[in-house]
Write a protein that binds this DNA or RNA. Structure first.
Lengths: 260, 260
DNA sequence: AACCGTGTTCGGCAACGCCGAGCATCGCGA
DNA sequence: TCGCGATGCTCGGCGTTGCCGAACACGGTT
């Protein structure tokens, strides 16, 4: 974007951007002129890109009046890139049971430079379904998984991460300052798990706990999400213990296997 | 590949191929020389492609001795391309319950020109986890979902599809001829659901039933997969009815909403 | 029937990205 | 400790590629 395009392949960058536009676009697809306007490339060039990506299965054409949709190759590679993560298989064996047990939606996030990237999810039966953007980097300050990860960084590292990401104020409970966040983080360190009390979404309550890879570094965190109710509030300590127990089990499994 | 590269963008095609190689490659990634050899492109050009894709987040670099891995953008877009399918949300509300009820792994496939493409999965608690390649086109002749889809095509269309895909003999129970398959298909039509009795994998037993979109066309199928046991065999009719019931529920939901 | 708006084709100019050679760096073994 | 090989990375020149704009074809609408 702002970077010098030297020794990069402009055509590929445009294609990937186009792919993202298509995927983020409306569910019934976009047509050629819409796409070409959006990406600011001539129609003929846009068409060439689309054709190339269609050949490779990354883009699907929906007749009539050709509309372009994300193709199945994208889904295939995306799924594959998740399942090859060693953590995924482990998580899939522990997560559904926890979701069942405490009746909350469980999510798994990787630690990407101090920020959580959610890669997996398990719903509790009958629970409200929470929309999760898999693969997207979340703000660490407004999610319990993010805070659980932060708690394992040094104070300087935390400051550096927050300096980059900023502190979004999603609700009136969101942390507005670094010092406020740090007070919370210190509680997390003492408590062993993180709490997100309506800091991301009004009425939503989360508990998060970190797990650690074979080198002892924080590999990520799991979090439990649910509607904030009085009954649930009362049992926070119990739920917290369950989440920590599950995270610890994942840590143990991770230690059992080499990086390969 | 074999097609004339006219009005296609060669650079993009190479990049996408590279992306696929990386994703299909080993879990700990590949280095530059390996990749450049595999794709048969000079190292410098390969590097330029990798850098471009890294900028866009499609490729991730793992230090040390830079190894290249699929990036998080791939996961994000892949997940997004699935969740924007109208079928996905519906399936996610019905599928886990069915998995729970009959104790088998449930999968959802779309109908892509007569071939099943699996886009979603729900495991039964405690069941063996079956490895599923999401987004990949399966052979229609060796899966119950595939046969459930085929059963809704005309005999000529079936012949055309099989002519393209061929009849792979995965096990000794796989259909070896079109006539053998057609006999099976006719049973499916009469019965209302398809059975895969060790035709894909030795010892694995599946039941599949189709669902239909708002235009009345076969939109895909769901299938239940499990280890073949005597107890399960005996209750085939009951399980079949449950799978059909679930597929019908999905059909009803699909009718309720416009293409939008 | 004329008119937009769409998708698609075509040709020419030049920029872009491909390649191979050379340099820097790391890691392993003697 | 030193040297050698392999790997990642840089650089510049040549040639091809892929970009663009204009023109064409088609369909639906007024």
């Amino acid at each position: 974007m702002a970077a010098p395009t030297s020794d990069r392949v402009a055509g590929v960058a445009r294609a990937l951007k186009l792919l993202e536009i298509i995927t983020l676009g409306p569910a019934d697809g976009m047509n050629l002129t819409e796409l070409s306007k959006k990406i600011e490339i001539s129609k003929s060039s846009t068409l060439a890109l689309l054709r190339t990506m269609t050949d490779a299965g990354f883009v699907r054409i929906k007749e009539p009046g050709p509309r372009y949709l994300p193709g199945m190759t994208l889904l295939r590679l995306g799924d594959l890139s998740r399942t090859t993560q060693p953590i995924d298989e482990i998580a899939q064996t522990y997560i559904p049971a926890l979701a069942q047990e405490i009746g909350m939606t469980i999510r798994v996030a990787l630690n990407e430079g101090g920020r959580p990237v959610f890669i997996s999810r398990a719903d509790a039966p009958g629970s409200v379904r929470f929309h999760t953007m898999l693969g997207a980097k979340e703000f660490p300050s407004v999610s319990s998984a993010g805070k659980a990860i932060l708690a394992n960084l040094s104070d300087e590292e935390i400051a550096a991460v927050i300096d980059e990401t900023g502190l979004p104020t999603r609700t009136k409970h969101s942390h507005g300052s670094l010092s406020s966040l740090m007070r919370d983080i210190n509680q997390v360190r003492a408590r062993g798990y993180a709490i997100d009390d309506e800091e991301d979404v009004e009425g939503i309550f989360c508990i998060g706990a970190a797990f650690f890879d074979h080198a002892g570094r924080c590999g990520g965190a799991i979090s439990a999400t649910g509607i904030k109710t009085a009954a649930r509030q009362k049992r926070t300590a119990f739920f917290g213990a369950q989440v920590v127990k599950c995270a610890d089990a994942i840590t143990k499994e991770l230690h059992g296997r080499r990086a390969r």
